[in-house]
Design a protein around this nucleic acid. Structure first.
Lengths: 123, 123
DNA sequence: CGCACGGATCGACGCCGGTCGATGTCGTCC
DNA sequence: GGACGACATCGACCGGCGTCGATCCGTGCG
């Protein structure tokens, strides 16, 4: 802040008061990757869908449309988002696509959030 | 799925094959609340801002605009989002607004994600 | 082969949110 | 009081995203 800068006459714009100059923000690529996973989770419908998948080990879309009250294309879209984010896996069996939770992905996210200082530093 | 339904003659539309009928999805209000917190985190810029705040215990906006390369209004807006999501606190001191991380909020989110089955069931 | 079913994809629509220049508000200093 | 600096807010712009009806694709069965 300005008062700290006043005592550092030669560090008026290269040094932030609280941020050591050798500590840049989280790398852009890491931030993007983490944000994408969090964004996949950051929708109430997708959280509801996840809770349903978790409760029955594996689920297909015809089981999910009713409980969450969404149309089939919408559920299909959401499931795709979750699969692409690495939070679910999809397995085609005949007519049915089975979706399952990826526990490791949640564990990893939990680890990042549990220790925010170290977690958000991981690259 | 359809084959499971074929063996449950009276549960053809009320029962999903994998979801026990007494296990509804995550409650809508809970899903909304959790989604809001996750959405606050689900932006790469905000993750970068958070990593900076974490590294220096407390920061103000003038310290943050440079490292993340955003304008003051944008940073101010992002900080507001994080404060309203309960992930940061804001304290006005003279001209400066000090932002700090709320560790408990992260711990809670981590808990929800670490044990997804129970975590997403919590209300 | 034709039909039924489950699910993916397309296209359109409306809403949301990141971004910034401009401006307003507040606190501090002279 | 006026000037300055920090930061909040406003308004506009633009891209992204949730949603659904329609349609397409793949599988299974008679």
């Amino acid at each position: 802040m300005a008062d700290a800068r006043a005592t550092l006459p030669v560090l008026d714009d290269a040094d932030a008061c609280c941020t050591p100059p050798d500590t840049p923000p989280l790398a852009r690529a890491d931030a993007q990757r983490l944000a994408e996973q969090l964004k996949a989770l950051a929708d109430p419908m997708r959280l509801q869908l996840l809770s349903l998948v978790m409760d029955c080990d594996s689920a297909c879309i015809c089981d999910l449309t009713g409980p969450v009250g969404l149309s089939q294309p919408t559920v299909s879209h959401h499931m795709r988002v979750l699969v692409e984010a690495g939070l679910l896996t999809r397995e085609q069996r005949g007519r049915w696509a089975h979706y399952r939770v990826v526990p490791e992905a949640f564990a990893q996210l939990a680890g990042l959030l549990a220790d925010p200082r170290q977690g958000l530093r991981t690259s």
